[in-house]
Nucleic acid binder design. Structure first.
Lengths: 289, 289
DNA sequence: CTGTTAGCGCATTCAA
DNA sequence: TTGAATGCGCTAACAG
């Protein structure tokens, strides 16, 4: 009898095309099986690949992901966090636009979990999934120093973003290691964008003597640098060496004289999502006590 | 007195960090001010730029956008549509993975609006925002024919996707226009991916005589083709000409002998979103009668 | 103008 | 096992 009814109900479900209303369910359960992923640049493959890692891990656990793009703007970040809180997401994966703890506090105030990705947030205790930017930069610079370079231009990201600061620390550390002073005219900060990479490279080549090598603090800066070098007909590796953080699109990698530090962005996304889901599960277990 | 209370309430709102629960609101209003954007490839700049157009137009109107990526899979598409329906989105912007009307019917069955982007869906009446793929391809091929090319390889997208089919129609039409027959060994279909572009190009160059020009049906196919050509040290434009649909990343465009057809993806996204929002507004007006 | 109430669709609880 | 009642937080309708 029971089974007969079950079957009847299921038949009706498909026939009528019934789809449960997750708003009502979320309202009732105070859980939505949804997480918010807030990144800073949706056009950067580093983040889109990372987003796929998140997506895959989350959907395996029956969670959905809302993807939001802040364009490195703290204002947009706050807007999106609020919008996601309104939607009662259970947790957040956040690439913070700036190294402030306000966002983390906002999230926690509303009882949601948060895992930070890619960047440190000093002054607050929070889970972070990221790579060692300082070490990565250190090794890239050491590679150049071992090749005999001494005038190495540093094309950095935005100050106030931990990866930009850590990569600069790595640069300084490597230079110090080889007893080379810091030549300030070779150190330039900008954005993590192609435009910025182009412009900083251009400025770098106003100097005389020219640098013999360039460190690009991320993939977009490197692409901008490559663009300038091609336009100015400056040959790699004869006239300049180039090393960079992050992968470059394979289409650019025909030049074997270009050293990159790969970050496992897909795995970072996966790990961060898994960590967040674990936190959510633990909390749930706690609730039942 | 009223104002005093208003102020008191507002003070409490900020003090307590109150954020309205949009689940409850949506449940009550049967409207969520949210649209779902379902695209087929989040790694393709064509779609991410389009997504930004959608995002900007929607947020101007106070709407939020859920971005979902189907990887050209109809199964994933159905899953996401259901998930979005569960979340009671008001409308959909859909890049259909395949030319079937099932998805449109599913959406309409649940009373949501839908605007299709980029691809036709025959056999059902629905708003579509797209470019003229046939004409675009026709012009690119005519360009090659005017340069004197006769052996033009066609590297196409997946059959069953309208843009792939339309672009092939444009190719055939141009060849016919110049009284050139269709040489089937020069016509290859694959995916809209770099891997596919590479592989199809490789196969194309097994032929003898070689083609003198290549038509790539989208940006990724072109990038794959470029990769093969570089690796095989085949020079553009001396040994081969290449034309392609879609923009290529600026880093690749150092070669001036490469003709592209640009689709205004940002504007397409904007227009589609505006159209959808208009439909939603009209419907609302109708409801009040 | 202010205060009260009903009900959106669901899951949980309690009663039968 | 099944059915009916409750309330999640909100807004629209209504009453005072």
């Amino acid at each position: 009898m029971q089974r007969k009814n079950t079957r009847k109900v299921e038949a009706a479900i498909t026939e009528l095309g019934y789809v449960p209303n997750s708003l009502a369910r979320g309202l009732r359960l105070k859980k939505t099986k949804t997480i918010g992923l807030v990144i800073t640049d949706i056009t950067n493959p580093f983040f889109t690949v990372l987003a796929r890692g998140v997506e895959d891990a989350a959907s395996n656990a029956g969670f959905h992901v809302f993807l939001c793009n802040t364009d490195e703007s703290e204002t947009k970040q706050t807007e999106y966090l609020t919008a996601l809180l309104q939607r009662q997401v259970d947790g957040f994966l956040l690439v913070p636009a700036r190294s402030t703890s306000d966002s983390i506090n906002l999230i926690r105030k509303h009882g949601a979990e948060v895992v930070v990705i890619d960047r440190r947030v000093p002054s607050i205790q929070v889970d972070v999934v990221r790579c060692d930017s300082e070490l990565g930069a250190f090794r890239l610079i050491m590679h150049l120093l071992e090749l005999g370079h001494k005038r190495i231009a540093y094309l950095g990201g935005p100050l106030g973003v931990s990866t930009a600061e850590d990569r600069f620390l790595g640069y300084k550390k490597a230079m110090r290691e080889c007893n080379l002073g810091l030549n300030e005219e070779l150190v330039l900060f900008g954005d993590y964008t192609q435009q910025s990479g182009y412009e900083l490279t251009r400025r770098t080549f106003q100097l005389s003597p020219r640098p013999t090598a360039i460190f690009a603090a991320n993939n977009f800066i490197a692409i901008g640098a490559l663009q300038y070098l091609r336009k100015a007909r400056i040959n790699i590796p004869h006239e300049i060496s180039l090393v960079t953080f992050d992968d470059l699109p394979p289409s650019l990698l025909v030049n074997p004289f270009l050293t990159t530090t790969t970050q496992p962005s897909y795995e970072m996304g996966q790990q961060a999502a898994k960590l967040l889901l674990t936190r959510l599960n633990n909390r749930e277990a706690r609730d039942y006590r």
